[in-house]
Nucleic acid binder design. Structure first.
Lengths: 232, 232, 232, 232
DNA sequence: AATGAATGAGGCTTCATTCAT
DNA sequence: GATGAATGAAGCCTCATTCAT
């Protein structure tokens, strides 16, 4: 099972870690480091206090720089938020896609996707918050953004379900609606988990959630019993 | 099929209708009328623009009163929002409970709950928005509120599932987690529906969603095929 | 000769004075008074420090109110400036038109216009500054505004000159260009006068300027010698 | 007719052209070249957007250098502006003086001055803007600067008029005031011309303006008819 | 009860200037 | 000499809340 590594865990963001933690040498490197610092700070503050309740001053303070410094690297507060949502979603999506690509048959693929999401969120609690909870706190400006985000994951699920239908693994169903429902179910489970103070590991929900979802689309009980996470 | 009644339909809020629409006579009556006017106005504006993006001035304008008038009836913008969320949730919950009480066996009860939620939301699109989308826009302060709201409905579902388990209608499962997942699935379907410009009636999702949810907890296919909505 | 009267002189703005200076009684009256207060304050600050160098805070302080108070009465800083320029120009223009209407023959009309402008500016030194000097300090946003303002007065002059040409009082000339040149000459004389610390009365320039302008369009020396200001 | 020469035409600034356009060799030369580059860039930006609306960043970008680079060559944004106004005015003044020196009799001298100003402005539209329009956009700080500039040209004109009076070419008049009025007339004509999108050549205003100005001080119609621009 | 005016804290953004490299 | 990053003081505007009438 995937375990997220590197300092990014401690920082809570799915960032691309530099090879070492030595102080950056070149100007360009230092600039990029500061940019990351700001993103991290914004990430933390956004996830803790929501978009509207986060002042740029707070981001600056958390990044140990000045307000002007923030505005040197980003044109607006909104741009910071957008970049955060976009890159975080991208990283999650590509992580899922990589995991899915390793599986050949439909159920296995769905399994891999679910497991990856839960495990990744498990390692990046606040990332989950940014993507699935606080995005809505950003107000109507970001409804489109959030909309697209949810659609994207729902569509991804629907795609796997379509494959499964074609392969005859599950009976024909409304895969679009089912994708939405699955996403909602996962989303809510993660969201609840986020709001608990000292939660059990998110992965413990996997078996139940897996069985629930697979059953919901009519997968054989036999296959459901064959939990791949027990093999790896 | 349920049809929400009263003037609340035209106003979009699940309000308690006064017996007649004659101008209120007593002082107290007039005061309550104004209060309702403000709540309605706030409801509309909150659901359209979100909590943070709604100015008290806008509420006052929509209620055809003045800012001072609003503050006479409510101590705080937050108080208006809280009252709105609480009473709206109360009304939905009691509506569901009444519908459920009419059913005797577990699956039927779950069915009734699901149907009531979908149908009520279908008739009160903006109410759904208030409860399930915009509540998050209110920011940190209201996370607890939202939290409680979601918990409440998830627990309600879990309760029905517990009954079903006890009755032997479904095999033993983690009903708490399943309640959360169900709620999430429904929530997401409603939320997507809210964001579409000219959506198909929400009730059209009922058969698919119903089958999905019932299957997910291992209800017999035979029972699933017996759709109660076809009887009523 | 016209002598500007009322408190507006002391305040430097061509405002419409209320009949008495008693404290305003009704709410509406008080509101209008505050509005005027703000306009006066803005007027003073704009004329002293220019548009860009005037902070809304300064206007508020000068008007003995708060920043929020200013924004209650005006939507933007720009709106204050626009209103100031527009109403000031309007008042000057109508003053000129009234004076001109009393004269019947072309030269007399031009005379009246020139005299009115000089005399009005003489009584409202800072008004002149707002219209003819500081308007340019407002930056490109207001070029159109300033443009229109200068055009308006140049066109007014050109109109009188056209009448004079038609009446045969002066030979045919390019009246449009001449209007611009006249306006420029007057404008510059006034502007110079504005910048002097303790200037001689502006009206002392009248005879020279009058002769200069009339000669420039070929008016008979005999008519020029017949200075109407000596009659009144 | 005068044609401004050198690369300054293409760049719009009355700059001192270096003999060739080969890359500068010595350190000092390179430094001066960069300085000029910055002045040119500042000139362009100031004339297009005004002083306050021009950011040092824009100047740096237009000069293809960095903000730090600008501050190496100039202590202050204001210093750039001052240098620009001063040198531009100097160049125009000396150009006028050279043209005037070629004429012997007073009317011819005034003629030469007027023609030089119009023709120079005609060839350097943006220079005119810098001197006569945007200088005011600089705000309070530069009122003195602008003041001095206008005074200087008005005094120059007054000087020529004094000569004419002494020579008996024109009757005695208030030459100081007349200088101001002439300058104002010319200034306004140029300013209007600057604000038109696709104006006729500025020189076309010369005959009318010339006649207007000469008549205004009582020059013989015979002499006015004798337009020197027809001879050259 | 209601009104509209006022308050003032706080938010986002700009930008001249400084400075380490 | 040059660069780009950083700073921090303003600046404009918003808005929940208060209050005299």
């Amino acid at each position: 099972m995937y375990i997220p590594t590197g300092r990014s865990v401690s920082r809570g963001r799915l960032s691309v870690a530099r090879s070492k933690d030595r102080p950056p040498a070149t100007q360009a490197e230092r600039s990029r480091a500061r940019r990351e610092q700001i993103l991290d700070a914004a990430f933390h503050t956004f996830t803790r206090r929501g978009y509207r309740d986060t002042a740029v001053d707070e981001i600056a303070a958390a990044a140990e720089t000045s307000k002007g410094g923030v505005y040197f690297h980003f044109p607006t507060k909104e741009a910071i938020f957008r970049e955060l949502v976009r890159t975080t979603a991208d990283r999650l999506a590509s992580k899922v896609e990589r995991a899915v690509a390793l599986q050949t048959e439909p159920i296995g693929r769905a399994d891999a996707a679910l497991r990856t999401v839960l495990v990744t969120f498990a390692g990046h609690r606040t990332m989950a918050r940014l993507l699935f909870v606080d995005a809505m706190g950003a107000g109507r400006v970001f409804n489109a953004e959030t909309n697209a985000l949810h659609d994207r994951f729902a569509a991804m699920i629907a795609g796997y379900l379509d494959e499964a239908v074609e392969a005859g693994t599950i009976p024909p169903i409304d895969t679009a609606l089912t994708g939405v429902a699955w996403f909602g179910a996962i989303n809510e489970v993660v969201a609840r988990w986020l709001l608990i103070d000292e939660p059990a590991p998110l992965e413990t929900t996997y078996p139940t959630l897996r069985a629930l979802l697979l059953r919901s689309v009519g997968v054989d009980e036999a296959r459901i019993a064959d939990d791949p996470s027990l093999h790896s």
